[in-house]
Structure formats: structure tokens, C-alpha cells
Simulated scan of single mutants.
Amino acid sequence: MPSSVPAGLRLELSRARIVEDKEEEFDEWMAVLNDRYPEHEAALSNERQVFEATFKHREADGRLWMYHLSLMGADGGGLDESLPLDAAHAAYSRRVKEPGWEELTPAFMLTPQHIGEIMAHWGRTGSIG
């Protein structure tokens, strides 16, 4: 990690192609994640997710990609499919995106020091206290 990423955190920007003819289902997937937003709280602590965002991008040649930006604790866990929302999330992922991710290399992150300290604490412990 670049030195600008607080110790104990991992910054990732990943991309994956959306399976051809699955754009509507991708949009449905994102609607489910937005509509069920309060359910994400149950998974955040285990995953040590500090920040997560997903973007959709269409290349000039028409190919559709999803980009995923994430800041998490270095030892955070993945999806917990015993949680209903995580199970739905994983199922959409298997149907809608091509397997695997292309990883971009982090080079710099900027955040106010007091917020960086809070993020690093969450990333280490999964708690605010």
C-alpha cells in the first residue's frame, strides 16, 4: 500500500466485465443493494469495510464494466453468505459479472488525519469504540 493509506488498511479499485445481455440484471442487483441498505450494517464489522462504492462504465466499443472501490481493514473477511443480503449479493455476482477481477494498483489516498485515524481503527477492530 502507498504510505498515504493509513496503516492496517487496504485500498482497492477493481473492475470486471458485465456478462453480455446482463445489464438489466446488473441494474437490478444495484437496486437490491440500495433498497436493502440498512442490512449492510450486519456485514460491515466482519468485513472491516470502511468505504465501498460500485460504478458502471460502458467502453467506446460497447463493452460494459463494473468498477468496485473499497477501503477495508487488511484482515477483513469477505461476504458472509449466511446473511440474506450477502447471499443475494453473491448470487447476483455469479450471474452478472464475469469471474474474477482486474486489480488496479493504488498510488495515493487523501483524507483528513482525524478521519484517517477513525478509518484505521474501524479497519483494525470493526468497531467505533
Rank of each mutant, 00 (worst) to 15 (best):
M1W: 07
M1H: 14
P2I: 07
P2S: 09
V5S: 07
V5C: 07
P6H: 10
G8T: 10
L9K: 05
L9D: 03
L11G: 06
S14I: 10
S14T: 15
I18W: 00
D27P: 00
E28L: 12
A31F: 01
V32I: 12
L33I: 02
D35S: 05
A42M: 07
A42S: 09
A43P: 07
L44E: 05
S45W: 10
E47P: 00
Q49T: 15
Q49L: 14
V50L: 08
V50D: 06
E52G: 13
F55S: 01
F55E: 02
H57F: 08
E59C: 12
D61Y: 08
R63I: 03
L64N: 03
W65A: 01
M66H: 03
Y67C: 01
L71C: 09
M72V: 12
D75A: 15
G76D: 08
L79V: 04
S82G: 11
P84A: 13
P84R: 15
L85E: 13
D86G: 04
A87Y: 06
Y92T: 01
S93E: 15
R94V: 12
R95A: 10
V96H: 07
G100L: 09
E102R: 02
E102A: 06
L104F: 13
P106D: 07
F108Q: 11
M109S: 05
M109A: 09
M109H: 11
L110N: 14
T111E: 08
Q113S: 13
H114V: 10
I115E: 11
G116I: 06
G116P: 04
G116W: 04
A120Y: 01
W122R: 14
R124W: 00
G129Y: 11
